[in-house]
């Protein structure tokens, strides 16, 4: 019986391999409407392939992706709020443990890096981290959307769009600046403004990291001859790892700079000066 099963498996496997190879050889690549150069250019610039947002305006596909991701996350959060959280127990189950670890990770990151003021920071990096991680993974699903030219296209990661990355980078900087002003007034603001390159570095790091994944994946998908097996590895590498790494990097940077900006150290200096 075992030998029979093995033989059957081998036959099916070899047939499938032969069929796919035949497919690769026999099927002519579709006459693409857009060259790889154009496609790569558009992935960066988003000048074409706009999507109508409820007929109000034409936007980049990343905006629609952003709203879709937000909708999915909020729906999930609402379901959890209604059905799961009221049934929380002191000794947590697996799902409760996952939720607690999720919240606890960002809360702990905020508390560790910013011991003085961390309530708002915890909530902010929780949202930003969840958004970066889940919206990057969202790209893997390849949900389709029709652009204004009537062509179907896969929804990209929201932060692979420069506008999305700038929004998050600049917002993180504003959060740090706000924390500095609230905690230390003008001196705090001056300390944060000193790092004026921070919003740019944050935005472009995010954009560059996610865009590189998108470009390589697009490149692999573009050529049918390398669109077997390889996209899985590339997709997992560039999407999965980037989502985790970029989440950690942005949250860590924001919390570290926020902690530095909100640190109170005026009185010490005065005392030291008086002693000297």
């Amino acid at each position: 019986m075992e030998k029979k099963k093995k033989r059957r498996f081998l036959v099916i496997w070899l047939l499938l391999l032969a069929a796919t190879l035949a497919g690769v050889i026999l099927i002519k690549p579709p006459e693409s409407e857009e060259s790889v150069k154009f496609m790569m250019y558009d992935a960066v610039m988003h000048e074409y392939g706009k999507i109508s947002l409820f007929g109000l305006m034409e936007v980049n596909p990343a905006v629609v992706s952003a709203f879709t991701v937000t909708g999915i996350i909020l729906l999930f959060a609402a379901i959890v709020r209604i059905f799961v959280i009221p049934r929380f127990k002191d000794v947590p189950g697996k799902f409760q443990l996952l939720l607690e670890a999720w919240v606890g990770f960002f809360d702990g990151l905020a508390k560790t890096n910013s011991p003085h003021r961390n309530k708002f920071l915890g909530a902010y990096i929780f949202t930003a981290g969840s958004y970066i991680c889940l919206s990057t993974l969202f790209e893997l699903f390849g949900l389709q959307v029709v652009n204004t030219e009537g062509i179907s296209m896969a929804m990209p990661a929201p932060l692979a769009d420069i506008n999305g990355a700038i929004c998050l980078g600049a917002l993180s900087y504003l959060v740090i600046l706000g924390g500095g002003i609230i905690a230390n007034g003008g001196r705090g603001a001056a300390g944060v403004l000193k790092d004026f390159s921070l919003p740019i570095s944050m935005s472009f790091r995010l954009f560059g990291a996610l865009l590189s994944g998108l470009l390589v994946t697009e490149l692999v998908y573009y050529y049918i001859t390398i669109s077997f097996v390889l996209p899985v590895i590339v997709g997992v590498l560039f999407t999965g790892i980037h989502s985790l790494v970029q989440t950690y990097v942005l949250c860590m940077l924001t919390s570290v700079f926020y902690g530095e900006a909100t640190e109170v150290h005026e009185k010490k200096k005065k005392d030291e000066k008086a002693a000297a």
Partner: peptide, 19 residues
Amino acid sequence: LLHLFNFLLLFGGLYLLLY
């Protein structure tokens, strides 16, 4: 601004519903 609007929506919702 659209991304910002989206993020603020997510921030408020996630804060109230989950965090």
